[in-house]
Design a protein around this nucleic acid. Sequence first.
DNA 1: CGGGTTCGCTACGATAGCGTATCAAACAAC
DNA 2: GTTGTTTGATACGCTATCGTAGCGAACCCG
Lengths: 203, 203
Amino acid sequence: MPILTEPEAARDPRVTRSRAVILQATAELLIEAGFAGVTIEGVAERAGVAKTTIYRHWRTRSQLIFDAFESLMEPSAPRLTSGNLRADLIYALRGLIRGLTVSRWAPAVSALIEAGDRDPEVSRLVHDFLVERMAPFHHAIQEAVERGELAKDVDIDASLNMLTGPIYYRRLVSREPLAESFAERVVDQFLRGAATRREEPAR
Amino acid sequence: MPILTEPEAARDPRVTRSRAVILQATAELLIEAGFAGVTIEGVAERAGVAKTTIYRHWRTRSQLIFDAFESLMEPSAPRLTSGNLRADLIYALRGLIRGLTVSRWAPAVSALIEAGDRDPEVSRLVHDFLVERMAPFHHAIQEAVERGELAKDVDIDASLNMLTGPIYYRRLVSREPLAESFAERVVDQFLRGAATRREEPAR
DNA sequence: CGGGTTCGCTACGATAGCGTATCAAACAAC
DNA sequence: GTTGTTTGATACGCTATCGTAGCGAACCCG
């Protein structure tokens, strides 16, 4: 009896191949039809693989979807430390925007949000993914505080939300166009604030 | 042959009743099981109604879900014009937070986001809903600009996104706790900006 | 090249949902 | 009270999907 979903060392190339085409097909279906659109039979057909082969390697649909999504993720971009907060934030936000619009997994984002609502396993996956994606922002802000570019009492939590929130909002909720240039508008608004300065220095 | 989905004047009380219990059951299912979890048979069973009765009143599942969601919405809060931007924004944001966390339709939000990705009818509904919910923010900012409380060249679009984005982000994406007090943190951050002032007046 | 693994294929019974048809009973409206 | 509408019940055929079983063929590994 084969060991299911072994993490490493699938020595037999047939196994390796099967897993790959199945994950690929699952990802495609996930993107095209959402969480509910992923069926074992659909995956089997698209992968050109027998249903039984899928059941041999994954116990549940959730596990399969989980693995498929994981396989879609690219390693995060290398850390940037330019010493300039504005530049760092814009760089990170641009990466996020790309991730949500043109990356391979971009079309699956909505499906994952909903899936996270119903499947705790998926929810955990999404969470881990987010933490990783948030790291550059956290890092940039922390460094800026150390440099004195940001006030020590800055609300980091709210700041992170205010930087990334608008991006997700456009992507998920309002569905307005989301170009990379939006990054600058958000960052500038974030840094400057909206209120006109009353303590404006002399003209 | 009955006229389907007539908007007004369902004179026969049997019709009125049927429509009500069906919409109620649909809404409950939508909340509990998401878009994909709404089935005609499921609705019929929960509503204590024959399947045929549903088909008599709605042509498609989308239409039914559409109407059910519409029936969940409360009329928006009366407009507030306090003359103080901060207060207006906090008030509006608190309303949004309540809507996304404790309202009747709150549990269905994720499902709707995903449904909007796949069903243009639902997408339009979500859009209309959003526009209505955004109005108070738009209004508050516009008035503040007129009062000179905000700079004339303020990026209204980005501002709206930066105010509401963080809320939706917490609700949909990060799933961190979302209390009404978060409204103040967002608004203050928004108004003040994060950067320490270099033009700080003399100590 | 031989033993053990993995695969594809086919078939199976079970479940769930679809959308339609029919018809008698309940009921509103006048 | 009679009439016309609305409903509930039931049944139907159809499709999709589930998860499992059995088996021979292909294939990897040593």
